[in-house]
């Protein structure tokens, strides 16, 4: 047994393709970014070596970069505080419903996840448009006219609106994973409750939640990652504006490279971005231990 499973040549052949993919697709581009970030490469022009100048600029002068980071962190926490509890609540409700209704609702809830972001973004832009959008119309119809706003152009509401759309987009996905978790433990829950005689909220906090913890961890991990990586929705809905009020790092990086033509600088942003992601991973692993990571 050990002879077969410890065969160096076999292991090498099994692991090699995956490692090569990682080197070619992730490591090499990032190292190249690291090199380019030390230059002043501009659109078309020759690259000049400028040392750490780009990095110094990020850390001392670039307000937008740090605003983008803060936005990502807020998004990550919003996932945890709002999206996840709601997802979990609905997963539990869904489980309770049973029968045909359960299936139908499950399909309905997951639908935004399979529709292109291009489509859902365009829809939300139209829905939130203060001139002809549905949202303000609904608010007016139910007598809450005072709340009607320019959701996406008012600097004070744009970030909240974008947060909402992003969370809406991911709702079905998060719910499905929690739902999966709920299904997986429902036998254990009932058993434990019969012994305990626990019902209602006590049942949830003393039995269901602890059993769901592994799923919570997975969902929080996925949420954290997607918060940092957020790009498409913002790119399509506000492009980070007005000003930098709804800016996220990936979108900022893209703008710096392809609109401001600051290629070297954009690469420096990419490198700092990667480092931040890794630091978050480390901190996060210290706080919430995910067994397999």
């Amino acid at each position: 047994m050990d002879k077969v499973l410890g065969n160096k040549k076999t292991i090498f052949l099994l692991v090699l393709p995956g490692i090569l993919v990682m080197i070619a697709g992730v490591l090499f581009p990032i190292l190249m970014s690291g090199y380019l970030s030390l230059t002043s490469m501009q659109g078309g022009g020759a690259a000049k070596f400028v040392g750490l100048q780009n990095y110094i600029k990020i850390f001392t002068k670039d307000k937008t970069f740090w605003v983008s980071i803060v936005h990502a962190i807020i998004l990550g926490f919003s996932y945890m505080l709002f999206q996840h509890p709601i997802c979990m609540g609905f997963a539990l409700l869904l489980d309770k419903m049973g029968g045909k209704a359960e299936k139908v609702f499950r399909v309905l809830f997951f639908i935004p996840c399979v529709i292109s972001i291009m489509v859902t973004s365009k829809m939300w832009v139209n829905i939130l448009n203060p001139t002809f959008g549905v949202f303000n119309k609904v608010l007016t119809a139910i007598g809450m006219e005072g709340l009607a706003r320019n959701w996406l152009s008012d600097p004070n509401t744009v970030f909240i609106s974008v947060l909402f759309i992003i969370m809406w987009q991911g709702f079905g996905y998060g719910m499905l994973i929690y739902y999966a978790g709920v299904k997986g433990i429902s036998g254990d829950v009932n058993e434990a409750c019969q012994i305990d005689g626990a019902t209602g909220f006590r049942k949830f906090f003393s039995v269901t939640l602890p059993l769901l913890m592994p799923v919570v961890k997975v969902n929080v991990t996925l949420g954290m990652i997607s918060a940092l990586k957020q790009m498409e929705t913002v790119f399509l809905i506000t492009d980070g504006g007005p000003g930098d009020r709804s800016q996220f790092i990936a979108n900022y990086l893209y703008q710096q490279a392809f609109r401001a033509f600051k290629y070297g600088y954009a690469n420096a942003i990419a490198v700092v971005f990667v480092v931040i992601c890794l630091v978050v991973t480390v901190i996060y692993n210290k706080v919430i231990v995910v067994e397999d990571l």
Binding site: S153, G241, P242, Q256, F261
Partner: peptide, 21 residues
């Protein structure tokens, strides 16, 4: 002026019109 000036000045103009500056 330059492309990066265009990008930055356009963004700034929007901030002004949105009364952020």
């Amino acid at each position: 002026l330059t492309a990066s000036f265009k990008d930055a000045s356009e963004g700034l103009t929007l901030e002004m019109s949105g009364k952020m500056v």
